[in-house]
C-alpha cells in the first residue's frame, strides 16, 4: 500500500543538483493551478491526491508539471467544470493549429501517436 509518491527511504541514485530554469509553459501551469485554487475550485490537497492516483508510470516517466497538468485535468472533469470530450476536441484543435503554424515543434513520439 505504498503510493508512487511516498518515496522516503527508498534507494535511489545521486541527486542531480543542476539548476533548471522553469520554462514558460511550466510557469503557466503553475499560474493556472493557482488561479483555479484562488477560485476555490481545487485545493492543494485535491491536486496532490490526483497526482498520486496517476500511478507509478506517471511518477517514473512524466515531468513534475506534466503530472500537475494531468491532476488539474482530472479534478476539473471530476467536478463537472469541463468534460473529457471538450478536452479531447481542444487537444486535437491545438495539434492542428501547431501543425499549421509550425511555430512549435512536436517530437517524434507525439507525431507517432497522432498518426
Amino acid at each position: 500500500m505504498r503510493g508512487p509518491h511516498d518515496v522516503g527511504g527508498l534507494p535511489d541514485g545521486p541527486v542531480d543538483t543542476q539548476e533548471h530554469i522553469l520554462t514558460f509553459w511550466e510557469k503557466q501551469v503553475d499560474g493556472l493551478r493557482a488561479a483555479v485554487g484562488a477560485k476555490g475550485l481545487m485545493t492543494s490537497h485535491e491536486s496532490r491526491r490526483a497526482v498520486e492516483s496517476l500511478g507509478h508510470d506517471a511518477h517514473e516517466n512524466m515531468q513534475y508539471y506534466e503530472r500537475w497538468t494531468a491532476a488539474l485535468c482530472r479534478n476539473m472533469i471530476d467536478k463537472g467544470i469541463i468534460t473529457q470530450d471538450e478536452v479531447d476536441a481542444r487537444v486535437t484543435l491545438i495539434r492542428k493549429r501547431l501543425a499549421e503554424t509550425g511555430e512549435l515543434e512536436l517530437d517524434s513520439a507525439d507525431a507517432g501517436r497522432r498518426a
Partner: peptide
C-alpha cells in the same frame, strides 16, 4: 490520500511540539 509516510508507520518517536489544529488533508483531498 495519506500524509503519514510509510517509513514512519509503526515507529516510535517523541512529540516535540504542538503546531495547532489544521484542516485534515486526508479529508480535504476528496
Amino acid at each position: 490520500h495519506i500524509r503519514t509516510p510509510v517509513y514512519l508507520r509503526g515507529k516510535r518517536g517523541v512529540v516535540t511540539r504542538y503546531f495547532g489544529d489544521f484542516a485534515n488533508a486526508e479529508v480535504e483531498a476528496y
